[in-house]
Nucleic acid binder design. Structure first.
Length: 439
RNA sequence: GGCCCCAUCGUCUAACGGUUAGGACAAUUGGUUUUCAAUCAAUUAACCAGAGUUCGACUCUCUGUGGGGUCACCA
């Protein structure tokens, strides 16, 4: 079938997959799937100095993790013979020539292969931007290869796109200015022109293109992956930056995105990456997880002193607190630190803000201790049941604040009934007694 | 600087000549609550500017301004 859509994602293996790459890959993937076409991954490793195999592996793993499975795979360096053939063809047909160069920098060749620029106007019909006209005269006779065996990006891209039958080149806007010279090469080798779609850039807070050099680790997918963000949330978030379904809907699974995607909804202007919104998306997906899934995702973030059994016990508390799994360690250091032996605290902290002093606090603590001591079945329900009348009578804060503080040693913690249950009767009474005696 | 692209709340966006310019995140306020979250409700907040075209412009045209991208023997 000659009219099958074929898209490609063509990263170079020179570092971690970054957020911009994720979005480019996603849109290429979505468009291919939407049209029952083929999504190809092509690793562009023509720059031998900067490319590393481990990055290639990382790229493939990351895409798999995101669920953006490619149908075909090409490693560009495997294609040198084909590139060579086309370079030779261009030379033979007078479209390219060997050029003597002045060596200015280390590593530069004395002789490279340049493309003979026909100096014409090129009109690009971009799916997102419409007609873009560029006069290629400014480009001069640009370099297409260091040698017959070492093609440069532009040559390799054009040849590979042709050989792979790419119908739609979907890539970031930064490539828009590369397009004219690639079209020139295309025409010289007699390749059909693919349809272009140049995506708006993903911007940092400062409105410039996100880059590792300038904006650090937060631009790489790994950063979010390592901090316990879900692939679904990242996909959903990234899809909605630079694209809109045209209505108010925000939550989309990958399959739903395939269904809804269209270039009509793709934005022209760059968009600022907003981590807050990503976190919000992540929480939306967190809430959908089953207990088993949630525990599985949590596992690698659990502190050593937190057994799985204990974690299961405090699970509801964790679920209502976090936006990303990466917050779990911090949670156990803060709100959930009551699971550890209690440290010292100033006794004034036991005082509810509406009490003038600790006099009645001491009395209340005594009452609480007495009440709980005689409690047979010690659960959060039974503890609450036993103490609630007292709390209602004396004021909830008067009773519950000192109790909660005595049990947790913290300003912020879960409610005292849950803590009591988790601690058990003995430890609960021990902590309450300690508080009582410290006053 | 040359060439190219872009322009709606702080941020992501809806609007495809006629709307009180809508939604989401964030922010603020209030409800709930023993604290922190969560949750619920509400509020604040935008058409870059100026000329046209038109009965009528956020929507079309032009100019200006602003922002961005790109100008490698990197991709």
């Amino acid at each position: 079938m000659s009219n099958t859509v074929v898209t490609r994602f063509a990263p170079s293996p020179t570092g971690f997959l970054h957020i911009g790459g994720v979005r480019t890959a996603l849109f290429s993937f979505l468009f291919a799937r939407k049209n029952k076409g083929v999504f190809a991954l092509r690793v562009e490793d023509t720059d031998k100095a900067r490319s590393k195999e481990e990055w290639t592996k990382g790229l493939i793993d990351d895409l798999a993790w995101l669920g953006l499975k490619h149908d075909t795979y090409v490693l560009q360096s495997d294609k040198v013979e084909i590139h060579k053939k086309y370079i030779q063809k261009l030379i033979d047909s007078g479209h390219a020539y060997f050029s003597k160069e002045k060596v200015v920098e280390e590593g530069q060749r004395e002789e490279v292969i340049r493309f003979k620029n026909p100096n014409k106007k090129v009109v690009i019909n971009d799916l997102i931007r419409g007609e873009v006209t560029v006069d290629t005269t400014d480009l001069g006779d640009f370099v297409i290869a260091r040698s017959l065996e070492e093609p440069i990006f532009h040559l390799a891209v054009v040849v590979d796109d042709y050989e792979m039958g790419i119908t739609h080149v979907i890539r970031a806007e930064e490539h828009l200015s590369n397009t004219p010279r690639q079209i020139l090469i295309q025409e010289a080798i007699g390749a059909p022109r693919p349809i272009y779609a140049h995506l708006p850039l993903i911007l940092a807070e400062d409105k410039s293109k996100i880059s590792k050099r300038k904006h650090g680790e937060k631009v790489s997918l790994t950063y979010y992956k390592d901090r316990g963000y879900l692939a679904e949330a990242i996909i959903n978030f990234v899809a909605l930056i630079g694209w809109s379904p045209g209505n108010d809907r925000e939550i989309f699974s990958l399959d739903e995105l395939i269904e809804a995607f269209s270039f009509d909804g793709v934005q022209k202007g760059g968009a600022v990456f907003n981590e807050e919104k990503l976190r919000w998306f992540n929480r939306q997906y967190l809430e959908k997880l089953s207990v088993e899934e949630f525990v599985a995702y949590s596992e690698k973030f659990l502190p050593e002193n937190v057994s799985k059994k204990l974690f299961l016990h405090v699970l509801p508390l964790v679920r209502e607190k976090i936006q990303t799994f990466g917050e779990i360690p911090e949670l156990f250091k803060g709100e959930l630190s009551f699971i550890n032996p209690l440290g010292d605290y100033p006794k004034e902290s036991l005082k509810w803000k509406q009490e003038p002093d600790l006099v009645s606090t001491k009395i209340y603590l005594k009452t609480i201790i007495d009440t709980l001591s005689s409690l047979e079945n010690f659960s959060k329900e039974s503890v609450k049941e036993a103490l609630w009348p007292l709390a209602e009578e004396k004021g909830k804060g008067n009773i519950l604040w000192p109790m909660r503080f005595a049990l947790s040693g913290k300003d912020r913690s879960p409610d005292p009934f849950i803590i009591s249950e988790i601690l058990g009767k003995e430890e609960t009474l021990k902590r309450l007694t300690f508080a009582y005696e410290s006053i």
